[in-house]
């Protein structure tokens, strides 16, 4: 029974991992920007939420919305003011810029918040639970998983049903032609980065409610994001979600088997998948474009 609970918890954490990967995949798929600072933005989302909660007691949904709006603005500005000048046939300049940015954010977090490991406490909601079929599940993890799923569905709808979402996909195919149809490429890219950072920050905030974080957590989060993208594929929403859940389940079940293992088991699982891929075994989900 405890294994079942571990799996359920893994699925819930995995939904957030899926969002990490989705944000990274959007930035790479649309702008060809390898965002090394992605992990730092995930952590930034957590600190932003913690800071908001320390100023005033807010509903979790309000905090999520505020962090989402701020993160979108930050991503938009980052792309519009900096990365748009660096992108081109060569992906390295933008990658180096985000690498520098990751160092800046990390050190800024250290000097503002210190190096303490912390967690976000939501009071009574933290301990509330329900019992389903004899298994007790926390209300909070359920809410978090629901938010993750809603975000996945919302991104899916955005990509297929709105002009800006179609423009994201079109820009990934052929940005020159998109410009000849009257779209300002710089703004399309800025919105895409806004969305990517928003997903990272919101998922980072929600993960912080479940587990601890410090200014140095970014590297670990970035690693998970890359693993999700590589397992799930660049263009596939479903692939990202399934890959995230897979890594989440392996990690939480691994922790159940050995509480000191940390993220070891999910990295081992990732290695296993790389090996399977290498020997050309057809995998579960096809990699199709967004």
């Amino acid at each position: 029974m405890s294994l079942l609970i571990a799996i359920i918890n893994g699925v819930m954490v995995g939904g957030l991992y899926g969002l990490f990967g989705l944000g990274l995949a959007l930035a790479f798929g649309i702008m060809r920007v390898v965002n090394i600072a992605h992990g730092e933005f995930i952590v930034l989302g957590a600190y932003l939420g913690a800071a908001l909660l320390s100023v005033m007691p807010l509903n979790i949904f309000v905090v999520v919305c505020l962090v989402a709006i701020i993160a979108f603005g930050v991503g938009w500005l980052l792309q519009f003011s900096l990365l748009n000048r660096l992108i081109g046939p060569n992906p390295v300049p933008a990658m180096i810029a985000t690498m520098g940015l990751s160092i800046i954010i990390r050190n800024a977090l250290v000097s503002v918040f210190g190096t303490d490991i912390r967690a976000i406490d939501l009071g009574s909601l933290q301990d509330a639970g329900i019992t389903l079929f004899g298994v007790s599940i926390g209300i909070l993890p359920l809410i978090i998983f629901a938010i993750a799923i809603v975000l996945f569905l919302a991104v899916g709808a955005l990509m297929t049903r709105t002009t800006i979402g179609r423009a994201f996909r079109a820009a990934a195919d052929d940005f020159e032609i998109l410009e000849t149809l009257g779209f300002d490429r710089r703004k399309v890219y800025a919105s895409a980065m806004g969305l990517a950072i928003m997903l990272a920050a919101v998922a980072g905030l929600l993960l912080a409610v479940r587990s601890s974080f410090s200014p140095y957590s970014g590297v670990e989060r970035l690693l998970i994001s890359f693993e999700v993208v590589i397992i799930g594929g660049l263009g596939s929403l479903r692939g990202s979600l399934i890959a995230g859940i897979f890594l989440g389940v392996v990690q939480v079940v691994g922790l159940k088997l050995n509480p000191n293992s940390g993220p070891l088991f999910s990295h081992l699982a990732f290695l296993l998948i790389l090996l399977v891929r290498h020997f050309d075994v057809t995998f579960l989900f096809a990699r199709k474009k967004i």
Binding site: R169, D173, I290
Partner: peptide, 8 residues
């Protein structure tokens, strides 16, 4: 745009 449908 190859990954978009004709109508898109």
């Amino acid at each position: 745009f190859g990954s978009l449908t004709v109508e898109e």
